[in-house]
Design a protein around this nucleic acid. Structure first.
Lengths: 187, 187
DNA sequence: TCATGCATGTAAGAGGTTACATGATTCG
DNA sequence: CGAATCATGTAACCTCTTACATGCATGA
């Protein structure tokens, strides 16, 4: 017999339940926590969080604790919430979902023009170089402060990808620079 | 005076206009083209494409050519469409948008359990290793067949990121394996 | 002739973003 | 006292996915 409680969690709800394992949090804190921990690889917005928290509460997966200062409504994970999270996690991480306009531009490079593409790659190079600097520093701090290996891994993922991006950019900056300009722009 | 035609393109419409630079295509062909060229980094669905093609046609940015076999309705880029694409491209690629459940899992590793995380990483390792093999082969083919450097760059992006993922996985498989199991599961 | 691939579309709903609207608390 | 930060929520809208529904053409 299927009840409300059997329905599968969507990934945003699941993420919320996951983070509530750290202790009771307000919607605001959840957003901040997600942003600082998985930041670029997983995001949730305020609207979403408040919406999901209400429905999670209705389903008994979280419960509101005693209100704090400034209208704060901290939510705590319930036993049912823990179970729901576990069965969600049991199914493994789903498919990745990326939307990289830079790659769309790259693929369409012929119609965007070589010089414009070079500018775009150079701009992206700066962004990625800054990422590498920032994240490498954070990783060192995490490592020397004996942080959770999972947090270290997350930060390291960002740094690793940013470094890989740099290599890719440098390789193709050269490749693109070598293209004869005879594209279909100004034709 | 703002008219319909001044409204900014959404990125899906812009992508469609971009790909139509290759020549007139049906909605079906657009989906197939996007899938095989930028595949994992940018995706569009059939429903979206047909919807956007209608509105693009209304706005005069594409126009329907003479119908072909099997009810095929090929759309061609118009001059206005070309201009619209150009001004969209002028603004540069926007922010990347990623949703990587693997990283969500990683961040929440403490609450998922070490052994489960090891399994997950090992599974992901296989996926990424397969990617590296496939994409490296494609890149070689592209390179030796004198393909568009932009297409080569796109494929190479996938291969580069997959290789970086492998390195990341191997590093953290070791790190996680070294964790003492005393997490908050079964507590 | 039958399976596969090409082709178009709609409907409903889930998920996500942006803007609006409000207010308390803390720190300098 | 004023700015920044913490805090909650709604409304409108856009985007995206999934399922449904249909049918022609090609090649084995």
């Amino acid at each position: 017999m299927a009840s409300d409680h059997d329905e599968l969690l969507n990934s945003t709800s699941a993420a919320i339940l996951g983070f509530l394992h750290e202790g009771p949090m307000t919607g605001w804190q959840l957003v901040a926590t997600v942003e600082t921990s998985v930041g670029p690889f997983w995001s949730i917005t305020r609207s979403q969080v408040y919406r999901e928290l209400s429905t999670l509460a209705e389903r008994g997966l979280v419960e509101q604790g005693s209100p704090g200062a400034r209208d704060a409504r901290p939510y705590a994970l319930t036993g049912a919430g823990r179970t729901a999270f576990e069965s969600w996690a049991e199914q493994g991480p789903g498919k990745a979902n990326l939307r990289l306009p830079l790659l769309l531009f790259t693929t369409l490079g012929k119609h965007i023009g070589r010089d414009r593409m070079l500018d775009i790659l150079r701009a992206e190079r700066k962004v990625q170089a800054a990422q590498v600097r920032t994240l490498s520093a954070v990783r060192v701090t995490f490592e020397s402060s004996g942080a959770d290996p999972y947090s270290i891994a997350t930060v390291d993922y960002g740094a690793t990808m940013a470094r890989a991006s740099l290599r890719w950019i440098d390789r193709h900056l050269k490749a693109f620079a070598a293209i004869e300009v005879n594209g279909d722009r100004h034709e």
